[in-house]
Design a protein around this nucleic acid. Structure first.
Lengths: 228, 228
DNA sequence: CAACTAATCGTACGCCGTACGAGACGATCA
DNA sequence: TGATCGTCTCGTACGGCGTACGATTAGTTG
């Protein structure tokens, strides 16, 4: 029935009667669907992804997608995981700078998600894909290398995971399309009015997000690994 | 036109012809709508809240709700903020145990959100309500009391905010209805199979979430406040 | 030729949020 | 008294969504 194996691919209709000059469409495939879904998600956000529009963009009928994916949720799962491929730490392996490796891994993770602002908020409520698990596995291995084990290891992994997810979601939620940046700023300024400490610190207005992320990360790592 | 002021309230129809014994409904109001929305969100999650069902539960027609709220998004905003009221730290004020106050505030915040698992994931993508801002203001004041100021204060607030949000979202996402707890466990066990370090540490299976939250929080606070 | 499989997609169904406008009711005023 | 108004309720309808179903086409295999 609904076999999801990539079979041999060949033929393609290009209109009626062989009219020349019509554009050549690549054949439909799971990969193309996912790649196009990522484009649309980047452009319109989570709520802006519609199956019909996705199919349109691929030059296909809406229901054709369902030969390759079970449902819209699976599109989310695949798009999310596809965005989180990790090349690995700069020094392939035996490096003893475990802390540098971890920081690199987490900053890269955050950067990947900020490049696709929908991804962070999607991650916690969707299934874990191989790329995400690969990152977790690598993180665990690196901590082991640093001498963290057992219960401490789980505490470390989850603390960092939580921190990275939270920081990225928060950061992404403060991004707005340039169109209404002014309006958003005004709204935040007004909001602050009745909260003096928040207003004085300009907490909602300008922040060095990257620097703050890095600082909190350092503090966490200071505590998470044994004295030295 | 669409005035949103709570006016004088009085009459209520109770069916046709004055049939006796019909149940008395409280009049519709913004408060009742929000309270019932919270009930439904608790029961069915973010995607499970439908305007028609909400109206049904209130004994009203679907469109009656729109006299009190602009749209569904506003229902989310109000429900979210309504869930985050904060009673304040145990020692009303002048206490010098700023760290205890902060920990209390953040653990209470996390507890509030875990009581309503939909709230954490909603918070970052919805408008900030007065209760949330009140918590932030109190947090800022407490840090000021501890001698943290200016840029450091913003770093501290956002690091903690990120950590709490991330921890709560992650924690909530691991909660499943008891029905399919077994299935979920099995799925995670299978997943771990190909990731040896994850499997050995049982990272995805059993965790002391509360303990881990508290530990990471302590590490963050250790770093965020000046030596002493 | 027939039978089977892989792939495409038009149509239709049920559900959603909500625009619109008609009504019901009490209060106000001529 | 009746006309008018503001407040509140809700039936109907519209457009858009995800997707079930089954017809259709084309290539492969006998």
């Amino acid at each position: 029935m609904t076999a999801k194996l990539k079979g041999t691919r060949s033929r393609r209709s290009q209109g009626a009667g062989g009219a020349p000059g019509s554009e050549q469409e690549a054949p439909l495939s799971s990969e193309r669907i996912v790649a196009t879904a990522v484009e649309l998600l980047d452009a319109h956000g989570v709520d802006g992804l519609k199956m019909r529009q996705l199919a349109d963009r691929l030059g296909a009928g809406a229901m054709s997608l369902y030969w390759y994916v079970d449902n819209k949720e699976q599109v989310f799962d695949l798009a999310l995981d596809s965005v989180l491929v990790y090349r690995g730490p700069p020094q392939p392996d035996g490096s003893r700078d475990w802390r540098g490796d971890i920081v690199h891994m987490l900053e890269d993770w955050r950067a990947c998600m900020l490049r696709h602002p929908w991804s962070a908020s999607l991650l916690p409520r969707r299934a874990l894909g191989p790329n995400i698990l690969g990152r977790l596995e690598l993180l665990s291995k690196t901590f082991s290398r640093a001498g963290v084990a057992d219960a401490d290891l789980n505490v470390a992994i989850w603390s960092l995971w939580n921190y990275v997810i939270g920081a990225t979601i928060t950061r992404a939620s403060f991004d707005v399309s340039d169109d209404d940046r002014a309006a958003a700023q005004q709204r935040l300024t007004d909001l602050s009015k009745h909260y003096p400490t928040i207003e004085r610190s300009r907490l909602l207005l300008d922040n060095d997000w990257d620097g703050a992320f890095r600082k909190g990360l350092d503090f966490l790592l200071d505590g998470l690994v044994p004295k030295h």
